[in-house]
Design a protein around this nucleic acid. Structure first.
Lengths: 329, 329
DNA sequence: CTGAAAGCGCTAACAG
DNA sequence: CTGTTAGCGCTTTCAG
């Protein structure tokens, strides 16, 4: 029980009450080094009694550790703040950070100017950084000071470990499903072409088309619903006989479906549509969207944990994506 | 330009380079107090040259200010972490906090145990708190230490200023639209009944029904899509002649529509469905959802700003909600 | 107008 | 195993 102290208890208060020195109290509370079980018990009791909460601020100051985990999202504009995918990353990161008393900051890293990273390196309040939708340029701009405190959700580099969904396998699973259900004129609406990790699904598409002797039908998208709509129109114009559209994101797929329907094209009867991400809405949309899972929460949790603990991690960790067949394809 | 220093510049470095004392440098950089324009210029130049970034951690320590803005969401379980509404709050808060070097932490406050708030009060790393979906019980549990550093998105109290959408007006607009388009057997799927701010739309519903001489048809929901589905089934069973359903949230409305359609009920032909929130998906769903706007970003921005600046604010600030008529009603 | 000095709360050598 | 001693980087009286 926290006694309603006028001022939160400090380590000094705890030490005094326990009858030990501040250093000893620090040791037992911090969990390192030696302490007699007697001291341990007394300090624990005192802390409990006082409702002691360590001051992360002071701890960070002396350790030079920083107190914010920055989620830096590379993008063309600040719409990254509205991206549900980014939200899930922030949410997962927040959950991991909370017990450490560390806050999360969402930051947009302009696509063509990764200098923001340098500033993050010079900011002592930054505990670590999670890069989202990284480009090779951004990776190259990671300052040395940040080494070992950065993780990437997407592509990685020699110094930045990567945590990512197995895009290629997920795309492959969806495309094979399309093929297995008889589709032979399959178009793909891609993600932004500057995004390396998005390219992997394009490569998967290309390889499957080539292996099956089918023609490539690529339209560049940007993961948004709006672009999905216009991309569908473009697809219809360029290849009127199209019988399936594979969208690189669920949001895109929703746009594709809406545009198709507006033009009297039936989904999936005339054209099958599949996405990628398995957003919550995919299950309840009409028709329910066939897609592949994207374990963002697990990925983000792993990335945040890596940054927070600074434990050595593999240069690249892949998370499986599995097909979720529903009505749209 | 930031010279690639091995270690970020400190205030000491700046002062030394500018040829003044640390205190003076602190004053000009902090913007308070007096300083000769000469000193001002020299310190500014030195800071620029060194790429100096003040250490929020140290500043917070000496000022006892805290470095995290906690978004505390009251709820039955930790699914609050997946709520898109909460995400928008976090996102907006993050945007406001970033320039101050303050991080955001998302925290679930168990519905029946608001003691987490007490802990927040004892935690020096907490700069302030934004309460989301507050209950009177949670409001009452706000510790004195937090006074002036808390804002509520939802209902407020004598010590906690409230920032909220004008629920009643929004609900009224939707319901009047339903009435104006000829609906007379209007059911409502509510939010959780323990949530005071959700009750306001119920009150609006009741009043409009009474004023129009229509019967009340209330089903308790919980804002989720899943519950929307089961609530629709329940509605159909209890009042087979229903011709409109007003859902207290868009998510609920999506569930209602899906369940209705599964049972062969046409929307809006047989039953009109309207929601509340204007989620991005509402515009592209099929049928596009009639709803009322909910300026969450503006609300959250205002709340975060109030907590951050600690400037005096009105005890209650209402944000207008407007009808967005689309296809579903 | 400016500098010297005293901490904020905590950790980390370093001697006991 | 434990206490003493220095700071981490910054703000803020208090005297010049």
């Amino acid at each position: 029980m926290a006694t309603p102290t006028p001022r939160p208890a400090t380590l000094d208060d705890v030490a005094r009450l326990a009858g030990v020195s501040r250093a000893t109290a620090s040791r037992v509370l911090g969990g390192y080094g030696f302490a007699s079980s007697d001291a341990r018990a007394r300090v624990g009791a005192a802390a409990d009694h006082l409702g002691y909460v360590p001051d992360v601020t002071a701890r960070a100051l002396v350790r030079g550790a920083g107190v914010r985990l920055v989620v830096a999202v590379v993008g063309r504009d600040d719409t990254v703040f509205d991206d549900p995918y980014v939200h899930r990353v922030v949410s997962a990161a927040s959950r991991v950070c909370a017990p450490h008393g560390i806050g999360v900051a969402l930051q947009w890293l302009p696509f063509d100017d990764p200098s923001g990273l340098v500033r993050l390196g010079a900011d002592r309040s930054v505990h670590g950084v999670i890069l989202v939708n990284t480009t090779a340029a951004a990776l190259a701009a990671v300052p040395a000071r940040l080494r070992g405190r950065v993780a990437s959700i997407g592509i990685g580099s020699a110094t930045v470990p990567s945590f990512d969904v197995d895009n290629a396998a997920g795309a492959g699973a969806v495309l094979r499903h399309l093929y297995a259900t008889g589709r032979r004129r399959i178009a793909m609406v891609t993600g932004p072409r500057w995004l390396s990790c998005a390219e992997r699904s394009v490569t998967a598409y290309r390889e499957l088309m080539r292996a099956s002797g089918l023609p490539e039908r690529l339209v560049t998208g940007d993961f948004t619903t709006v672009r999905g709509g216009s991309a569908a129109v473009e697809t219809l114009r360029r290849w009127p006989d199209v019988d399936a559209v594979y969208a690189a994101s669920d949001a895109t797929a929703f746009g594709v479906i809406a545009a198709l329907r507006e033009r009297g094209v039936r989904v999936p009867h005339d054209v099958a549509v599949a996405g990628f991400d398995d957003l919550p809405y995919a299950a309840i949309s009409s028709p329910a969207l066939t897609t592949a899972t994207h374990p963002v929460d697990r990925i983000a949790t792993a990335a945040a944990t890596a940054v927070l603990t600074r434990a050595p991690v593999a240069p690249s960790t892949a998370f499986a994506s599995t097909l979720v067949p529903r009505e749209s394809a």
